[in-house]
Simulated assay, not measured.
Amino acid sequence: MPTTRTTSTFAPPVMAARRWLDGVDFPADRPLLNVSQAAPVDPPPLPLRAAMAEIVMQDPEAHLYGPVLGLPALRAEVAKRWTASYGGAVAAEQVAITSGCNQAFAAAIAALCTEGDEVILPVPYYFNHRMWLDMSGVKAVPLTVGDGMIPDAGQAAALITDRTRAIALVSPNNPCGVEYPAATLRAFMALARAHDLALIVDETYRDFDSRTGAPHDLFTDPDWDATLIQLYSFSKAYRLTGHRVGAVVASQGRLAEIEKFLDTVTICPNQLGQRAALWGMQNLDQWLAGERAEILDRRAAIADHFPKLAAKGWQLLGCGAYFAYVRHPYAMSSADLAPRLVKEAGVLLLPGTMFMPDDHGGGDSQLRIAFANIDRAGIATLFDRLAALTL
């Protein structure tokens, strides 16, 4: 096969892991625990589905092309809510709606980078970010995280070259789950501004942050849009994964460049999904608060039950939002351990090697647990199975 944009990167990790299930039977008394993917498996709540059905039948515009940068009412709603929740000022013209948050990242990189440019990514990284950089001819420069799986702006400064165009952060983090302190984000904002770089902050999981109030104050800077590009996903908040609705918040100038990318890829975001997201934002605050409380309870369950793994030599490196990131005690790579867990424990999860370059140390002893789709009892069962391993 000739070398192409797609051959420059690796196969989708979640799809690769699903192949480990081929030919494996899971008995009724030990069903599969799938903690491999960070996505809701339930459909949207019933009131939202009813609203979507009405939209399908009653709103002719929901079936036609719409504005490339998204539904004006949804852009305005995001701007209003972001202004209220973060402080500062965000205008509707600084918001674009995308076909999922992955597309938001892809569009931002397309607007920022060209062949041979560089983007700094904390490691472990979200693998789809790395994949898109590879396919764009952009070098992903790994930044090793420090204590608590938190990146350090001072260490990032040493990685900046004349080809660096952006630093991309994810908070709450995927895969580690940790919530970056406001001071950390502020330090990265200052670093990016000093070097005329963009700071991309992916806040896909912001609705499940354990902190009260704004997680950072970046939007209070009157010139935030000269540096900051924020990404968001409606998929996790309203269970709209299949409808692909995300957002990018940036300067009007950058959105004008992003518009070129979006127009040539999808023309417009999913019309039904956008209307569903708008309805959810306007009607489901109380429901979403309950969803957040449930996720926080599952996070607490991780802490409650982890001692049984700690007694076996496991370490909890990070936990929050949808994820727990752990270090296993076995004398084998996580790339070999993860497939074995399917057969020996009935557990599907992802190895740390999927979240970092092949030549970067650490991933072979690490695993990601995406716990959003197992409840407190399921978490107890998961840890019982892992604790019972004899390898």
Rank of each mutant, 00 (worst) to 15 (best):
A190N: 04
H243V: 09
L191T: 08
S85H: 15
A39I: 14
A276F: 03
A226N: 10
A92Q: 01
L112I: 01
P13N: 10
F261L: 08
L21M: 10
L255K: 08
G242P: 03
D285E: 07
L218T: 05
P357R: 09
H305G: 05
A311M: 14
Y125A: 14
G320Y: 06
A214W: 03
D336Q: 13
Y325V: 05
E203W: 11
A321G: 01
E61G: 11
V119M: 10
L350S: 08
L159A: 01
P47K: 05
H63T: 05
H328K: 03
E54Y: 08
A194F: 04
Y232T: 08
S251P: 09
P43S: 05
L349P: 08
G280K: 02
L48N: 00
P44G: 00
P60Q: 09
P122S: 07
D223C: 15
V123D: 04
L348N: 01
S136T: 00
E294F: 07
L218I: 03
P31A: 02
A377H: 15
G116M: 12
A17S: 13
P12E: 14
L284A: 03
D221A: 10
A153M: 02
F10P: 11
A104T: 08
Y126K: 15
D117A: 10
T220H: 06
G313A: 03
G146T: 10
T184E: 06
L350K: 00
T83S: 09
K139V: 08
L386G: 00
S334I: 08
L185A: 04
G346I: 09
Q315P: 10
D297H: 15
G352H: 01
V141E: 00
E257L: 14
Q271H: 02
H216S: 02
L231C: 04
Y65C: 11
N283F: 05
L262V: 12
S8F: 12
V249M: 11
H63A: 07
V35Y: 03
S333V: 11
L159M: 13
I369A: 01
L21D: 01
Q274E: 03
F355N: 08
